[in-house]
């Protein structure tokens, strides 16, 4: 799990970059070519963020010690029982 970082921009960086891209595009100062490039990058970032939003599964675990080792087990919520 911990290895799943930095191969791509984080959600936050991606959002910031997206905001910047959109603002630049809306400023109307870009050439048509740059517009296309921005659009492509922006669309890619939207897709990326969308993926990030949905890739995590709901999981509630509890850290417990078992035979001197720390391990996780599902946490039972009271509302479920």
């Amino acid at each position: 799990m911990a290895e799943k970082k930095k191969e791509q921009p984080g959600f936050e960086e991606a959002l910031e970059r997206l905001e910047k891209i959109v603002e630049e595009m809306e400023s109307g100062n870009l050439s048509l070519e740059d517009m296309m490039k921005h659009f492509e990058e922006g669309s890619m970032l939207v897709k990326h963020c969308d993926k990030k939003l949905n890739e995590v599964e709901r999981k509630i675990e509890k850290l417990v010690e078992k035979d001197g080792e720390m391990t996780t087990e599902p946490f039972k919520e009271d509302e479920d029982s």
Binding site: E57, K62, T72, F75
Partner: peptide, 8 residues
């Protein structure tokens, strides 16, 4: 869909 780890 959030992954939560509780440390009791």
């Amino acid at each position: 869909n959030l992954h939560i780890l509780i440390v009791p």
